[in-house]
């Protein structure tokens, strides 16, 4: 059952990610990306991380993708015709082939002779268990990431403020 769910979620996620990359329209790409993130939530659930699965949907598929779609809708109209002229730089795509080879070799090397099977009883990442770590051992990181978010908010507001265009 777990194997079936892994291949289902993983295959759908990979397919949706590939569709994101090859979509002509940015709106279609964003919708495929949402689908891919929902499948990622399924992968997290398989990895005994229900809290992450919920947050993946709330933050990624919800908040971040709404931001993306908002900006796409704002810019889309005049942008699309120019893109159909030259969709991709195909020669650069060949660069990914050696990268794929390196990835396969590294995974094979890392998997060699290691204990790669998961334990029988997983430590479930419930909200309570994750919060216990987050607010005790990793409190400093938690506070620092909140500063990162604050700076990002201020920066986005400062960048997005409509300025007078000089002639």
């Amino acid at each position: 059952m777990e194997t079936f769910l892994f291949y289902l979620c993983g295959g759908l996620m990979l397919g949706a990610a590939a569709m994101t990359v090859v979509s002509r329209s940015a709106v279609a790409a964003a919708v495929w990306l949402v689908f891919s993130f929902v499948c990622a939530a399924g992968i997290f659930a398989l990895l005994a991380a229900p809290f992450l699965a919920i947050l993946q949907i709330l933050i990624y598929a919800g908040a971040i993708m709404v931001l993306f779609l908002f900006v796409i809708m704002m810019l889309q109209g005049p942008v699309l015709p120019a893109e159909t002229a030259r969709l991709v730089a195909w020669r650069k795509a060949l660069l990914t082939l050696p990268a794929a080879a390196v990835a396969v070799i590294l995974i094979g090397w890392a998997a060699q002779g290691r204990e790669a099977a998961f334990g029988e009883t997983p430590v479930t990442g419930t909200p309570a268990a994750v919060a216990e770590l987050l607010l005790n051992r990793y409190l400093l990181a938690f506070e620092l990431i909140s500063i990162v978010l604050l700076v990002a908010i201020v920066g986005a507001v400062a960048l997005g403020r409509r300025q007078e265009v000089q002639p």
């Binding site: 990359v21 900006v71 942008v79 969709l87 730089a89 650069k92 990835a103």
Partner: peptide
């Protein structure tokens, strides 16, 4: 790799 291909290949900065 799919993501990397996207960054290398696509010209639309949103994608």
């Amino acid at each position: 790799l799919v993501g990397m291909t996207g960054v290398l290949v696509r010209r639309n900065s949103l994608i």
